[in-house]
Amino acid sequence: MSKVFLSAKLPAATTKILTDHGLTVSVYAGEGLISHAELLKSVVDVDYLITPLSTQVDAAVIDAAPKLKLIANFGAGFNNIDAAYAKTKGIQVTNTPAVSTNSVAEVTVGLMLALSHRIVEGDAQMRTSGFPGWAPLYFLGSEIAGKTLGIVGFGNIGREVARKARALAVNVQYWQPHRLTDPEERSLGVQYVEFADLVQTSDFISINAPQKPDNHHQFSAAVFKEMKATAFLINVGRGPIVDEAALLTALQQGVIGGAALDVYEHEPQVTAGLEKLNNVILTPHIGNATVEARAAMGTIVANNVVLLEQGHNAKFIVNA
């Protein structure tokens, strides 16, 4: 009987799919994230590994699992896995694209609203110094209608962010290495601009791009200096796209207006000092943390195991 190891607890329905198909399932039950040493011990005799993007699956882990056929990543990204090395061992690596699109887009727009209306800052004040009373110039924020949102990374999530933002009367421009066709741009009501122009003209910049070698620290001290002094940066893509030390300095010096981060350069650690700033919102990587999205992700990873077990091809292979 084939064995499946889950390196983190997943929705119950995910495990049920596996056990209903006769697979033996074991789950890491420790506190916090699984350690590299524990993972090495846990994969020795498994046929399938299901792992969240917080677990690093490197060459050592792959070498420790001679029976391994599939690494099913519970997440759209897969930079936590040495997919190229897995391929040399005949191991397929899959991800869970698209199903978290709506959830991440909702969080992105939610962070735009929270920043512009100072919602988190206001909540903190109510819990500490309190509300001194309504006054015409008290605790002013700004509306997002009529503002310009620049989206960096215009895949499924970026496009859904654009749709939702346009419904709130926000002007949307985007940049990515490959421009959409004119009919696609017109259907979404968006405008393509070069990266430098997006940085200089956007009131909000949303990072919705995957992590790649060429976008490490794409948002640097030099880029922050080119942004509007009132602009807000939102990162729901990948942490290392932003130089967090440079971001901290820019925020402390008033170079930009504020930031909201759902992902972090050294995740799960947060650059010290960011948590002290009242123009910063920090959330614990909750972009796709909804019952609906996680259930759909679980169905994909479980079904991919079942497909391989039954002699079929898995879906969403990233190292074919």
Results as ranks from 00 to 15, higher is better:
Gly90Gln: 03
Ala135Trp: 02
Thr108Val: 14
Ile91Trp: 02
Tyr264Glu: 01
Phe5Arg: 05
Phe219Asp: 01
Glu106Ser: 11
Lys212Asn: 11
Val190Glu: 04
Ala60Thr: 09
Ala60Val: 03
Ile157His: 02
Ile207Thr: 04
Leu70Cys: 08
Val301Met: 07
Ile81Trp: 01
Pro177Val: 01
Glu121Thr: 12
Ala29Glu: 11
Gly239Cys: 06
Glu244Met: 04
Val120Tyr: 05
Glu160Ser: 13
Ala289His: 09
Ile241His: 07
Gln173Asp: 02
Asn79His: 07
Leu137Thr: 15
Ala209Leu: 06
Lys3Glu: 08
Ala272Lys: 10
Val318Leu: 03
Asn279Tyr: 01
Ala167Asp: 08
Asp182Lys: 15
Gly150Met: 00
Glu143Tyr: 09
Asn319Ile: 00
Glu160Ile: 03
Lys67Gly: 14
Leu307Ala: 15
Asn235Lys: 08
Val223Asp: 03
Ser103Cys: 10
Val255Phe: 00
Val291Met: 12
Gly153Pro: 06
Ser187Pro: 13
Val25Phe: 08
Phe131Tyr: 15
Gln200Val: 12
Met126Thr: 15
Pro132Val: 10
Leu308Asp: 06
Gln252Tyr: 01
Thr299Arg: 14
Val152Cys: 10
Leu115Asn: 09
Ala302Asn: 06
Ala295Leu: 13
Ala76Leu: 14
Pro52Leu: 03
Ala246Glu: 03
Trp175Arg: 05
Met227Leu: 10
Val318Thr: 02
Gln176His: 08
Asn313Arg: 11
Leu251Lys: 03
Ser35His: 05
Val99Ala: 07
Asn80Thr: 07
Glu309Tyr: 12
Gln173His: 08
Ala229Asp: 05
Ala64Trp: 00
Gly75Ala: 10
Asn304Ser: 08
Asn319Lys: 03
Asn235Pro: 12
Lys3Asp: 09
Gly90Ser: 04
Arg118His: 15
Leu149Arg: 08
Leu137Tyr: 13
Phe195Gln: 11
Asp20Met: 04
Pro132Asp: 02
Ala162His: 02
Asp47Leu: 04
Val301Leu: 09
Glu121Leu: 06
Lys276Ser: 15
Gly141Gln: 00
Gly311Ile: 02
Asp243Trp: 01
Val4Ile: 05
Gln92Asp: 13
Ala293Asn: 03
Gly158Arg: 02
Leu113Met: 12
Asp20Pro: 12
Ala302His: 05
Leu6Asp: 01
Phe139Pro: 15
Asp82Ala: 11
Ala229Pro: 15
Lys315Leu: 15
Val93Leu: 06
Tyr48Leu: 09
Arg159Asp: 06
Asn215Cys: 11
Thr101Ser: 09
Asn208Tyr: 07
